[in-house]
Simulated assay, not measured.
Amino acid sequence: MGAVYRERRAARLPATIWFAGASGLEAGPMVRRILPDGCVDVIWSSDGRLIVAGPDTVAKLAHWVPGVRHVGVRFDPGHAPAHLGVDAGELRDARPQLADLWGGGPARRLTHRLAASGERAAQALEDALAARPRHRELADPLVPAIVAAIGGRSSMAGVAAATGLSERQLLRRSRRAFGYGPKTLARILRLQDALRAARDGGDLATVALEAGYTDQAHLARDTRALTGVTLTDLLRPSGGGQDTAAGGVGTSAAAASAANRSTWLPSGSRTVA
């Protein structure tokens, strides 16, 4: 049967709610390639794990075990710190247990609540996160302006000017809100835009230019650097048996040969590789 993945927009959070897993008919784990997307996820798995997937800088390989369900809240870029109470820079390329951030008691109670929620686990996770007090000191009002300026292909000087910050201030605030600086965020979001356009059937040379790359070769180099595979591999319909959704046991794509020594590394990418 293969992998199952679906998502919807959250009603009470600046986030996407998702459900994922491998059907129980597979002989073994299904491998998925999780692409960086600038987001932070809170992920519960039906085998009892409750973790936070920080913003990734490179792709991860993930193994979905048949019969294990994963539900998650994927915060829009820059919004997780205020809801989780932690600087996004501390979560970069990390997968801490939620208990490490909230304490064992609250995390344990939430885990029990989710386990008892059955098919409503995703809604229960959204409700639990929405009900917690926001950490206003970590809510940066400039996040939307920074993302919009980056999406508009502005230079870093242009992003700083659009937000009324110096470039040093922009770097510091970006690291706290997104987990990395504006150049890295721009590179990740540009690749996401290019892949969406390419999957819609766009000519790759045109896709590259419209996404802000110098040329198609530039897109190809960035794709390989961020995902660990070629652009052709990512766009192949079968994805080489790999795609991007969320959740799994994995390792960095750059260390694909070491996948058998993988650790629990779910993430939340909106792109299917």
Rank of each mutant, 00 (worst) to 15 (best):
T227E: 11
E90N: 00
R6T: 12
A217G: 12
R153L: 15
T111K: 14
I188R: 01
V159I: 02
W102M: 14
S155H: 06
Y213D: 10
A256G: 05
G89K: 05
D203K: 13
Q123S: 12
A124K: 06
A255R: 15
A253Y: 14
L25F: 10
Q216D: 04
R153D: 14
R108G: 08
P55T: 05
L235F: 06
V207A: 11
R132N: 03
D47L: 11
C39H: 05
R134M: 10
R108A: 10
W64P: 01
T244N: 11
T244S: 11
G38H: 03
T251L: 15
L84F: 07
V249G: 14
A246Q: 09
P133L: 00
I51W: 00
L114V: 10
P66M: 12
A225W: 08
A177G: 02
L110H: 05
R95K: 07
S45K: 11
E126S: 07
A53I: 04
Q242H: 13
D233A: 13
P14D: 00
T184H: 02
L50W: 05
A220F: 14
L91Q: 09
T111I: 07
R132S: 05
V86L: 15
S166A: 11
S238T: 15
I146C: 02
P81F: 14
A128F: 05
L165K: 08
L129P: 01
A194D: 01
A259N: 06
H218A: 15
A256K: 15
L191V: 03
H112R: 10
V249K: 13
P266E: 10
A273L: 12
T223F: 05
R221Q: 09
L234P: 00
E126C: 07
L84C: 01
A10C: 15
S252L: 14
A94H: 06
R176G: 01
S46A: 13
D100M: 10
V65C: 09
G201Y: 08
T57H: 09
D100H: 03
A160W: 04
Y5V: 14
Q216V: 13
A205C: 03
P14T: 03
R8K: 07
P133C: 00
Q216W: 03
